[in-house]
Design a protein around this nucleic acid. Structure first.
Lengths: 226, 226
DNA sequence: CTACATTCGGTCCATGCGTACGGAAAAACG
DNA sequence: CGTTTTTCCGTACGCATGGACCGAATGTAG
């Protein structure tokens, strides 16, 4: 069996798979679960993995290359992490957490629905523009990572996003800001539209992403406004 | 052996990299370059590769799996093809050729710029909807395939597309059909927008792509019309 | 039979992820 | 301090898979 990362290795061998084992199941761990070194290493490794994926793509990413990038030995990685899968998932989830932290305030500060839509897209693209490598890594992983059975590993993440934007659009329709359209369909279109612009920036960084933002906001505005 | 690429193996070892060597450099090939069997095998293998990439993703695609899918031995592949790279490039280029063949007539039949834009998007999505596996394979390969040096292998393909649509938009502006905007930027947005909708369909085939087409056409129409 | 085209099984070498084990470093203990 | 114990990390290895390739069958045609 492949028991545990750092310490879980000495645990009872029953707990085969528990990605969220961090929350105390028993009270005999008053000090933080992870030592200082471990937290530092994990952060370093996730950071290195992000850079490697961004540069070499999903398929070009191996533990060996991550180790090389971080200038550590390969086994440091397998010591601190359960598997490559765990690392990649962290790259994605951390990026989303940070992105949403950046966006949520901006969106909630707006009163009107159209303001919120603009804030959403604007804040999102700004954040991505400032974190190009992280964005590239995230999108490579999202597009490629699969479960052992072969199905895409990240599917539900997008649904939540669509739901949230759909609500904003519907409110805008009730308030008469927007014309009549299928809110959910348009929410999908808007989000994927932003992704699309990001996609062209991803493969060609000469695209001045920040300059495109006003154009995109304008485009969307004309499309949905009454 | 003689000339082909099954046989090109005996060529001068200088020509290291030539993705577009297929077009006759000399006139001494009146009969088709490839035998019947070879053409059949190549088609079969490209077809199998398409299915494998669509199902297992780019990273999950190996010559072994392609062979398995085609129910042939692995070396039949390496006999008829120079490399895995050649196969993957064919999957992409054939898909584009067919898609463009489907679209070009529809676009050129329209007189107005806005009609052409609608025809473009509509025909594109319809074609993709009818060829889901090929689309999935193409998009996996486009997103992941890299040169040996690590840079994305398909970058220029998109530029051409943008150029063509940009011209249509500019004409529409001159004719007063469209409002004022940066044609190139909006062309990018429109194309990537369609890609985005396709992307959500790619990961979730419950999306009724054909139903989304009118919504998307409507969305774009409102966005660019005067 | 000779010549060439096609296919198969198997080999080769590189790389992948994960593990084993021993020693260094740090923390706990006396 | 010194010693023991735990944490941490490097070297080396295991086992599987990858793409490419080779030589020996087959098939096919003259």
């Amino acid at each position: 069996m492949s028991a545990g990362d750092a310490r879980s290795r000495k645990r009872a061998p029953g707990a085969a798979y528990d990605p969220r084992m961090a929350e105390r199941p028993d009270p005999n761990d008053h000090p933080p679960r992870r030592s200082f070194i471990e937290r530092a290493r994990r952060a370093q490794i996730v950071e290195a993995a992000t850079q490697v994926v961004a540069e070499l793509g999903y398929a070009g990413t191996s533990l060996a290359r991550i180790a090389e990038k971080a200038e550590i030995s390969k086994s440091v990685i397998t010591y601190h992490f359960e598997s490559k899968d765990e690392i990649l998932r962290l790259v994605v989830s951390q990026f989303f957490e940070r992105a949403w932290a950046h966006m949520s305030g901006r969106v909630e500060a707006e009163r009107t629905a159209s303001g919120q839509v603009r804030a959403w897209i604007g804040a999102q693209l700004e954040f991505y523009a400032e974190h190009r490598a992280e964005f590239l890594a995230m999108s490579q992983i999202m597009a490629n990572h699969r479960t052992p059975e072969g199905s895409p590993a990240f599917a539900g993440e997008l649904t939540e996003e669509v739901d949230a934007l759909t609500e904003i659009l519907q409110r805008g329709q009730r308030d008469g800001e927007f014309r009549d359209f299928d809110a959910r369909g348009v929410a999908t279109i808007i989000l994927r539209c932003a992704d699309g612009v990001l996609g062209s920036w991803a493969i060609d960084d000469s695209t001045r992403l920040l300059d495109q933002i006003p154009a995109l906001l304008d485009f969307v505005d004309h499309a949905i406004r009454r």
